[in-house]
């Protein structure tokens, strides 16, 4: 191998390496990230009537420059995570109150120093303050909500969409079927696994005749989404999967048997027909 081909191959290797690294970076970076607000999109969003100062103040309240390269966390923290969301309370008092009473805020309090790592969400993680539109229909909100909640609750989103509720509400746009918050509460985002009476109250909103056993119906029956210590639910899910697997095996065996029989019979009949045709 001469030096030239060697160089060529080396160059190719480096190019591939850079491309690979580039694609990895592209995946890590949020796709719509920009340091500046896209005013065109902002002009169509719910908050478009507000001035920057209404939410951000002058950015010089602490007597320092903004941006201030001297600050220890300069360029180290995501604005979305460090913003003081108490300011949202000014207009969205009810939503803020519910958020504080809810599970996401509890998760934030439990691990305040790890909050950024564990990613207990605050307002800005689910809502885009600059770009989210206003006056959406219930179905539009529901469809967006399923995507937003599904960013973290992947298994729950999947099992919800496999369930009748998700199919009717999200896929088919039926506004009387339940979206995430119809069961888990808007902004409170409560888990329903610990208390059957709480869960039953939720079911009663659409199924007024439901009894407590009704809550044993498993909506999120993806094993990945169920806590290991939740023995009862794990037992239910393993029973569901067992019966389901048996019936699937039965169906596949039956279809294989009858399909091969039909295929062979048709071959024979067509073969005979053609042979008779030749003979004539």
């Amino acid at each position: 191998m001469n030096t030239r081909t060697c160089c060529k191959r080396g160059l190719l290797f480096i190019v591939l390496l850079v491309m690979g690294a580039g694609s990895v970076c592209a995946r890590i970076m949020p796709d719509q990230s920009t340091w500046f607000v896209d005013m065109k999109r902002f002009s169509q969003a719910a908050h478009t009537g507000l001035s920057c100062e209404a939410c951000h103040g002058t950015m010089k309240e602490d007597g320092r420059l903004h941006p201030d390269p001297e600050r220890p966390d300069f360029l180290q923290s995501a604005a979305k995570r460090v913003y003081d969301y108490a300011r949202c309370k000014k207009c969205h008092a009810k939503a803020y109150e519910r958020y504080l009473a809810g599970e996401h805020a509890t998760a934030m309090e439990k691990t305040p120093q790890d909050a950024i790592k564990t990613y207990a969400p605050t307002c800005g993680d689910c809502h885009s303050s600059h770009y989210d539109p206003a006056h959406l229909s219930r179905v539009e909100i529901g469809k967006r909500m399923t995507e937003v909640c599904g960013v973290c609750h992947v298994a729950q989103k999947e099992s919800y969409l496999e369930n009748y509720h998700g199919k009717a509400a999200v896929n088919l746009g039926y506004d009387k079927a339940a979206y995430c918050t119809d069961c888990h509460g808007a902004h409170t985002c409560k888990s329903l696994k610990n208390d059957k009476t709480v869960a039953l109250n939720v079911c009663h909103r659409c199924h007024p005749k439901a009894s407590e056993d009704f809550t044993e119906f498993v909506i999120h029956y993806d094993e990945k989404g169920i806590a290991e210590k939740d023995d009862e639910k794990n037992r239910y899910v393993s029973r569901i999967h067992l019966v389901s697997a048996l019936s699937l095996i039965f169906v596949i065996l039956m279809l294989c048997a009858f399909y091969s029989h039909t295929f062979l019979l048709m071959l024979r009949k067509i073969h005979e027909k053609l042979r008779r045709h030749d003979g004539e």
Binding site: D213, V218, Y236
Partner: peptide, 11 residues
């Protein structure tokens, strides 16, 4: 489901 879950477990 409301009726039948009174006879059988919900799952």
């Amino acid at each position: 489901p409301e009726f039948f879950s009174t006879l059988f477990p919900g799952y």
